[in-house]
């Protein structure tokens, strides 16, 4: 790119940044005090942590659609992935990485369980726990302990959609209440824990799937991946 064009791009970017900053600073104060509204209704939400209350109770349908979008993304990848291009058998990684995986993965599963449980009363929750599970699966794959998913088995498919199906089933069962995902306060805590447990497992599988479905790789030049995994 020549100098005048580069200057123009930089100038445009600076102008855009300035306009955005001005717009943000000019925003009027919110008309509805949402934090106060959340704090007021927190006792009926079934959980004690306001973020989880918003994500799983007050705005539960947002989370329902989020998991649907993630599932769709993975379905799209499964549709375009060529099964024959995947090397199904895991290949040997170096011993350090394998040792690290065998030490870290049980701890990561434990941490995921803790995050899921902690989501009810402190920062944590299904998305974070699912991400930790997915990272454990990716680590296992890089260490050569977990094969790439050439074509997902029936159990795996069930696991992938399970969280979404549980969420949908709860939403459908509660439709008689007249509003989408309005839990009865007495059972809200248990229902949220059920949904979050399903979401954790499915999210872990889906996020790991984003990595493992396209992990097509012949067995021999895989050494480079092991090196990069450590960096």
């Amino acid at each position: 790119m020549n100098a005048p064009a580069r200057l123009a791009v930089v100038g445009f970017a600076l102008a855009l940044a300035g306009a955005l900053a001005t717009a943000v600073l000019d925003l009027p104060a919110a008309a509805v005090d949402l934090p106060a509204a959340v704090a007021e209704n927190l006792s009926t939400s079934g959980v004690e942590h306001p973020v989880t209350a918003v994500l799983l109770n007050f705005r539960g349908y947002d989370t329902l659609l989020e998991i649907a979008v993630l599932l769709l993304a993975l379905l799209g990848m499964l549709a375009v992935a060529k099964p024959e291009a995947v090397a199904p058998e895991p290949s040997a990684a170096d011993p350090m990485l394998r040792f690290l995986a065998s030490v870290a993965v049980p701890l990561m599963i434990l941490a995921a369980g803790y995050l899921l449980w902690a989501g009810a009363h402190r920062p944590g929750g299904a998305f974070q726990a699912g991400a930790v599970l997915a990272a454990a699966a990716v680590l296992l794959h890089l260490a050569g302990r977990l094969p790439a998913w050439a074509s997902p088995s029936r159990m795996l498919r069930l696991g992938l959609v399970g969280g979404f199906l549980i969420f949908l089933a709860v939403a459908a069962a509660l439709l008689a209440q007249g509003a989408l995902l309005r839990y009865p306060p007495a059972h809200a805590g248990a229902l949220i824990l059920l949904i979050e447990a399903g979401l954790t497992l499915s999210l872990g599988l889906i996020l790991a799937g984003l990595f493992l479905v396209l992990a097509r790789r012949p067995a021999s030049p895989r050494a480079g991946v092991g090196e990069e995994g450590k960096s």
Binding site: Q128, A131, V132, L142, F211, V225, S231
Partner: peptide, 17 residues
């Protein structure tokens, strides 16, 4: 938590892959 796990961890692993 979400940024560290998804933004740095998973996205980084995907990009390295």
């Amino acid at each position: 938590l979400a940024e560290a796990a998804i933004g740095a961890g998973l996205t980084g692993a995907l990009l390295l892959d």
